[in-house]
Amino acid sequence: MRRVLALAANAWRENLRSRFFLLTLAFAGIFLYLSFILGALAVEQQARVLLDFGLAFIELMGLAGAIYGATTMVLRELETKTIYLILSRPVGRGEYLLGRFLGLMLSVLVSMALMAAVHLIMLRLKGWSGADAYAMAWLGGFLKVLVTASLTLFLAVFSSSALTAGVIACALWSLGHFLPELRFLVSHGAPRAAVAPLTFLSWVVPDLQLLNFRDRLQTVPGSGPEAGAAVWLGYCALYCAVWLALAWGLLRRKEL
């Protein structure tokens, strides 16, 4: 575990010192400011607009950082050969992947938390209250980014192309919001030829609706997520574990 933590700490340091991380925060600041202005145009719904835009943007920025990080972290190390000095030490390839992934997700978590802190201050200035609901909506956003990042990491190791992995990950992330519809299609009325690929997709695509606390909190004010915490936390843990294990299986066989 010490090695995993050392790798995670190094990945965190790498993200902290990279321009991309700073750019993410700068963009976030600009966009949150824009949503503040946009909120002013909404007259009576200022806080609502600021809340919706801000949360969506925080999630999107987190997602962009996670997909960029997950697609490049292993591939760049293979390309620059920095991986040689790691894997020529007593570090298992599974430990390597897990450490890098944890470091990436820590960076994403911190950047999303910083954006949320700024966002909350702006909401407070508009007289909005509801920190508990906000925390749940934000957590849902982070978990969506987390499961998508684990899938992206697998895609990157599998395809050996950051661009391909990134594009597929974005497509699957979009599909993940329509998983209930996809499942409905499989069981009701999809053409026979489409059933097998749609069933496969319904297993691969992350169930982002399960984690979409933001929409539910907005449509049913004061309510929590539909499923219990054990269900959605368990789902996230299992989903990440499966994709990380598959990525490990591929990396273990990869020749460097």
């Binding site: 990279s18 620059t80 040689y84 030490r89």
Partner: peptide, 22 residues
């Protein structure tokens, strides 16, 4: 041609690799 993380100093690099070596 050993490849290091350019954002690290030698001291930080060695600490990192040392930890990986136990």
């Amino acid at each position: 041609l050993p490849y290091f993380y350019p954002y690290l100093t030698p001291r930080e690099s060695l600490r990192f690799y040392g930890r990986l070596s136990g």
